[in-house]
Amino acid sequence: MATWQPTWSDPFFQKGQVITGLWNKKRYRIDGMLGSGANGEVYRVSSEGQSYALKVSAQAPEISLEHKILKQLQGVARGSDLGPLIFDLDDVQTQRGKAFFYVMEWVQGTDLPDFLQKRGPHWTPVLLLQLCTYLERLHKQGYCFGDLKAENCLVNEDRGVVRLVDFGGVTEFGRGVKEYTEWYDRAWWGQGSRLSEESYDVFALSMLAVQLIAPEARKSVQQIGPNYSLLKKAIVSDPRFENWRGLFKGVWDGRIRTVASLREALSPLVKRSVEIEKKIKSKQKRRRDWTDWLLLGSAAVLVLVFCQFLLF
């Protein structure tokens, strides 16, 4: 019964390959790989002219449980965009043997760090506030997101709307969190258990804030290992965290353990961000007006010169 899965094994599918589900007989063309992890691979696929994302794994239980949870979220939160829309669930024969997959909406967007680079760090509280809304809805259903991290969020570049993309860590409350990432894991930092509960996600969200505000901190931690008191000191003395200290102190002394209290701590930061964005917008407008005049002026000169040529 031993399953042999060396980590360097070939991917399940090749680009351009067409696969057919064993039960539902739906056909998908593989358009490329979107990502891979310990529990499977995600591909961009197309079927009847539509693009989707397809998650495949050698472990049937992982795939069917994840599909069940996503389906449930879709049913309860109809019309909302908490999870990706869910379509097919099927088996497929691959060169590595029988594999199991489900098909979901292909969510497109920019990485959070890239987005902040382009639009400015004042967007950080706005992005986090949106994540609070998603988490609140998920918690209402009795689930913890678990593997909350920058890589599992995508943001629409024009509208600044965040979506969560990988639901592999979603765990029923009261169990051990299924998937997690060291930096965001409170147990790794020695700040609590790995029990799936609301406060687990709240801690991960606070670490996401650190990651977005001071990305270099994570690199130094990789060398020295988890030292939460050292991290606290760095946050207290770093000017980039000036307006965030209230929020972090709340997380540290246990006042902020629910998404609602985190949202409350975020709201003054969001207000400030809105002011900054307004200023940027009006500046852009002014600049555009000025360049518009320049453009119009040079066009008029050109026309005059042209007319002179015609006349003489």
């Binding site: 049937a60 239980p61 069940k68």
Partner: peptide, 22 residues
């Protein structure tokens, strides 16, 4: 066995096994 069940039905078995395992 479980892999021979239709995928939709399989998730109920998977849920039970997951719970028992815990």
């Amino acid at each position: 066995d479980a892999d021979g069940l239709p995928p939709e039905k399989r998730s109920d078995v998977a849920e039970m096994v997951d719970k028992l395992g815990d």
